[in-house]
Design a protein around this nucleic acid. Structure first.
Lengths: 151, 151
DNA sequence: CTCACTGCAAAGTCTTTGCATGCTC
DNA sequence: GAGCATGCAAAGACTTTGCAGTGAG
């Protein structure tokens, strides 16, 4: 069983009710957290177990979760808008490696903020709170695949 | 006079014609390059001097410029989709500081890629090509404003 | 002179909203 | 029970597309 109570707390504190639909949407985002789902993908998963849930409800709840900072909008390919859920004590600072060839998205932790925070404050007078980093390139698998094909 | 010939070359090499509409869109994106315009903002500017240009043409040309790597899609606030033009010999690696309070966007150069490229290759087998970094926080102006109001 | 490009309007796609009903608290 | 949440359908916002006419190369 997933422990989503932490999110439930946030919802309750925000004055939102814990409806079944809300829970299912949240659970879907959590269970597929590595997949960075689109709204429609969430909807498809939700329908599998709860065919009565409407698309508008999925939209509304994703909007609320986003507003509460439970999930975040992110796009890797200029096409789809995806959502990522913040889970566990995941550092706010986990970043993404995106393969230009196969589109795969990998996660990564970096000491980025520790390293640059002071510099930004000193040089720009900017108080950095968090960052979103997307690094584009070619992933390990594709590098291997490419070298094999070149033989 | 702006020197947009570099972009014209890219367009021609890509097999695209240099129509007046195309030039005006490109020029608008260039002249307002710090503003990171939305499609509609580009359209509004374009109309000022060329009221006959249609919105669809703006869309089509922005799409082409994007495809050619002359401009890039970017969003700072989860709402608007904006476009940024690559200009001069700007390092691919110029990043953004976004103020959570006033929404202002500032640019910044970092030694990020130099610093992490080797590490990514060694640890993840990932060949990094470029990165997009957005740092969210509170800008200098807002910090000053906040402290004044607190008095 | 040819073929890509444009303007317009219509069609798509994605997202939000209004309203009657249902369900948490 | 009161009021937020839901489902549905309709409306809205944004983007793409079809087509006939235009213009760059």
């Amino acid at each position: 069983m997933n422990d989503l109570t932490k999110y439930y707390e946030i919802l309750k504190r925000g004055g939102y009710k814990l409806t079944n639909q809300r829970k299912v949407v949240l659970e879907t985002l959590y269970n597929h957290r590595k997949a960075h789902l689109t709204v429609d993908e969430v909807y498809q998963f939700v329908r599998e177990t709860n065919p009565e849930i409407g698309l508008a409800t999925v939209y509304r709840n994703i909007q609320i979760l986003n507003r509460l900072g439970i999930i975040e909008k992110i796009s890797f390919d200029d096409k789809d808008i995806r959502y990522e859920i913040f889970y566990e004590d995941i550092p706010i600072h986990h970043y993404h490696l995106i393969c230009r060839q196969c589109g795969n998205v990998d996660e990564l932790e970096l000491d980025f903020m520790d390293r640059y925070k002071g510099m930004l404050e000193a040089e720009k007078g900017f108080e950095a709170l968090d960052a979103q980093i997307k690094i584009y390139g070619i992933c390990k698998n594709c590098i291997v695949k490419n070298s094999e094909e070149a033989e």
